[in-house]
């Protein structure tokens, strides 16, 4: 029945080519021996070597990594709580405002979020730097975590949890031993998305940063403004490789878990 028509194949192929060609070109040129980015001078890894000596770039990468890990973890906690609040607690005061505050940052232009957070930090007279960037990223990314966890909780069968409680399991324990393992994949996906969004963010970090706290995107941006440089191609390639590897690892892990779950379900059905 499903016959791939010529038109469909061509449009998907062209679309994917459009998405991937620039990235592939960037990766290839990061191995260019020539200092001139537009002239091909043979294969070389020299820009990766020079990157190792670029201390400011390495410092920025380290700072970004720390911000991303802390803010993604905080955002995962807050976002999961918010998702539970929106799916499990039907009525509470200010629910409309709450869901509004969750969904708005998903589409809100970053300049708005960035400026408003900076003005908050100024009004509170807080020194800007590592922690202000982390708090800002937590706020933005927790909304993405909420949506991911929420969509998992909707398809969730609450009778499992109720059964546990009927059998005398306290609610907190029922949640931890029944619900949490089932929504764990969504929570993990939320953490990964929060991490990527944080390590990728330029605009909000630029607003909320202070002296001495330069994140990787801020650093790359200031270099890019001065023109294309081979070292930038190299660091971009490393970032892409890390992301691609972790996505592949996550999907393989997810497959294994899914297979295990299916086996467990099949086993349960037998008895």
């Amino acid at each position: 029945m499903r016959r791939a028509s010529m038109f469909n194949v061509v449009s998907v192929a062209l679309g994917l080519a459009f998405l991937y060609l620039p990235i592939v070109i960037l990766v290839i040129y990061s191995f260019n021996a020539s200092r001139l980015v537009t002239v091909w001078g043979g294969w070389s890894t020299r820009w990766y070597g020079e990157l190792l000596n670029d201390q400011p770039m390495l410092d920025a990468a380290w700072l970004s990594l720390r911000v991303a890990v802390i803010s993604a973890s905080a955002a995962t906690l807050l976002g999961t709580l918010a998702a539970l609040a929106l799916t499990r607690v039907r009525r509470f005061r200010g629910r409309l405002l709450f869901s509004g505050a969750i969904y708005a940052p998903l589409v809100m232009p970053e300049v708005i979020t960035g400026l408003s957070l900076l003005l908050l930090f100024v009004a509170l007279d807080i020194d800007r730097g590592f922690w202000t960037i982390t708090a800002a990223h937590t706020t933005l990314t927790m909304c993405f975590v909420t949506v991911i966890v929420q969509s998992r909780l909707i398809g969730f069968d609450t009778s499992l949890e109720e059964a546990a409680m009927d059998l005398g399991c306290p609610p907190v324990k029922a949640f931890l031993s029944v619900t949490l393992p089932l929504i764990a994949p969504a929570i993990a996906a939320g953490w990964m998305l929060a991490f990527t969004l944080s390590i990728d963010d330029l605009v909000i970090a630029s607003f909320t940063t202070g002296p001495g706290a330069t994140t990787l995107p801020i650093r790359i941006y200031s270099e890019v403004r001065l023109g294309v440089k081979p070292q930038i191609n190299a660091i971009c390639t490393i970032t892409i490789a890390v992301v691609a590897l972790s996505i592949i690892a996550a999907s393989l892990l997810g497959k294994r878990n899914a297979a295990r779950r299916e086996q467990a379900a099949a086993l349960a059905a037998k008895f």
């Binding site: 998405l19 960037l26 330029l202």
Partner: peptide, 22 residues
């Protein structure tokens, strides 16, 4: 195919714009 469409979204936004400058 679905994964291939979302994969670029996981790589840095800044990097993808930078790629176009090249």
């Amino acid at each position: 195919l679905f994964l291939l469409v979302i994969l670029p979204f996981w790589t840095s936004f800044l990097i993808r714009i930078y790629a176009w400058i090249n």
